[in-house]
Design a binder for these strands. Structure first.
Lengths: 151, 151
DNA sequence: GCGTGATAGTTGAACACTCAACTAAAGCGG
DNA sequence: CCGCTTTAGTTGAGTGTTCAACTATCACGC
């Protein structure tokens, strides 16, 4: 293979490492806060959020996986735990016998409602507060471009 | 507690979710590529990179943890595996009897050299290529601000 | 209707990460 | 020097994630 690697120049290097450091630190921090205050990892919180916004608080497993950015396997394991905690229940899908529908229980909703303020505060403190309005706008554009490309 | 939650407005909501989606997708993709092509997770690659840049390819465990963004525990576990793979060796620190020095072996260096081109290509393809030069600059500033704040 | 390939979801094993508890050595105040 | 606190690093248990294999059902062409 005589393909030359397009190495990162010093500026790109710096950008990449800063991004790596920042996003890792941000996620780790939010994850730790959520674990401490609500006893659940961020991925589980995300699942509950998506369910809470769905009509009737119900969503097919595959849609839930898609919207919460989980693999199917991860979601299966996660929902098994959330079900054991009493926050989610699984129901058979009436129109597709292969399907399962995840349903956010009242306790799950209450749990989420209790966890949300602290978490939002964390997102504000660690992400939005340090950035100028212009930077927030830039970050949105950047993220949308990247997400679009990676989808 | 009569503290009102400063909820996210729709714009902030959109920004936060886009960021979440993009950074998760980016990291997952790079992680998967690295696992597939080099048989190691991104965190391990990161450790090898830092070691390869250190004088004499040696670093104290705590400095390595710091620079690679790992907790001490995580690093201990990781280095144990890297050592089992023959890519890193641990040596006693001559000046501090509590200390351990991680040393990148020749095989480790070779492994890294083999993995690097593919990984850099991935970073380019998934991060830099989709962004304009101005956006890259913006992302660097944003990341530096966030990293600074979270440190 | 009937095979054939796609889709939905689960499972278990291997691996990775976290947290708290632990050992050992260093630093430091008196 | 001697306690006491701090720092370095490791460990094991518990939890979460991945990957590949698996079952069951659906959709489609014929």
């Amino acid at each position: 293979m005589l393909v030359m690697t397009r190495w990162l120049d010093p500026d790109e290097q710096r950008t990449w490492r800063a991004f790596l450091t920042a996003s890792r630190a941000l996620m780790d921090t939010l994850d730790r806060e959520l674990q401490r205050d609500a006893g659940m990892p961020h991925a589980y919180y995300e699942i509950l959020v998506r369910l809470s916004e769905a009509p009737d608080r119900r969503l097919r497993m595959s849609e839930l996986a898609e919207s919460s950015g989980s693999s199917r396997s991860r979601l299966s394991h996660a929902v098994a735990r959330l079900e054991a905690a009493g926050w989610v229940r699984r129901e058979d899908c009436p129109t597709d016998r292969r399907g399962q529908i995840a349903h956010l229980t009242d306790e799950g909703f209450a749990k989420l409602a209790a966890a949300a303020p602290g978490h939002v505060e964390g997102v504000r403190r660690h992400l939005f507060d340090p950035l100028s309005p212009a930077q927030v706008e830039q970050l949105r554009r950047i993220s949308e471009v990247l997400a679009e490309r990676l989808r």
